[in-house]
Amino acid sequence: MIRFNNVSRYYSVGEETVKALDGVTFKIDKGDFISISGPSGSGKSTLLSILGILNTPSRGEVIIDDINVYELPPEERADFRSDYIGFIFQAFQLIPYLTALENVMLPLAISPITRKAQEKMAKDVLKQVGLATKFNKLPNQLSGGEIQRVAIARAIVNEPDILLADELTGNLDSKNAEEVMKLIVHLNELGKTIVMVTHEENIAGYARRNLQLFDGRLTNGSTKLQGVLK
C-alpha cells in the first residue's frame, strides 16, 4: 500500500517560492491502477518523482508498505527503488548504444544474478511484451511502439510491485498507444500497482481511479472513473 500524507514540494525560483505540490494526501491500494491528470504545471510529474523516491518532499511523508521511504538513507532508497519500483518514461529513455536485450538487462546489472540468468530473464520479459524477434536491435532500429515496449520490459524485469508511468503514450500514435495500454492493463491484472501520469482523457480511462491535480493540489480526491477498458 502507498500513502501520501500531506506531501508538499516547494521550489525556489529567484525570490519566489513555487508550490509544485501542496499538502497532497491520498492512498493507493496494492494492485490498484491510478491515473493522475491535470494541466501542465499542475504537479503531476513532481508527484510521480516523489512517489518514485527521486525527489525529496519539502513536507509530509510517503509510506510504501509501511516504510517511510524518505527516512531511509540515500543508498537504501536506491535499493528500495530497485526492488519496488519500475519507471516508464514518456521519452522512453532507453540507452541508445545498448540493444533492446541489454537495455532490459540494465536494472539487473547491480544484482548478483549471473549474466546468463540475466539474459534469460530479459528475454522472457521481451517475449512477454511481444518483442521476441527484436533482442539485438538498437533503439534507433525500433518503432516508437516497440521502443516503449522495451521500456516497459525494462521496468518490469526485476519484478517490482509498483510501476510508475509518465505520459507513456505521449509519443505514440493511437494504434501503438492502444497496444501499450493493453500491455499495462495486463500487467495490472497480474498484480502490479500502476500509477500513470497522463493528460489524455482516453488514456486515463484505462485506470480504475483518477487523481486530478490543479496548482499542486488534488481537486477531486480520488475519483472512480467511468471509463471503460478498451
Binding site: 543508498e75 535499493d79 540494465l106 547491480i110
Partner: peptide, 12 residues
C-alpha cells in the same frame, strides 16, 4: 539519471 531512476546507487 536513468541509472539512478532504475535503482543504481551513487556508489554504482
Amino acid at each position: 539519471g536513468i541509472f539512478r531512476a532504475i535503482g543504481f546507487r551513487r556508489s554504482h
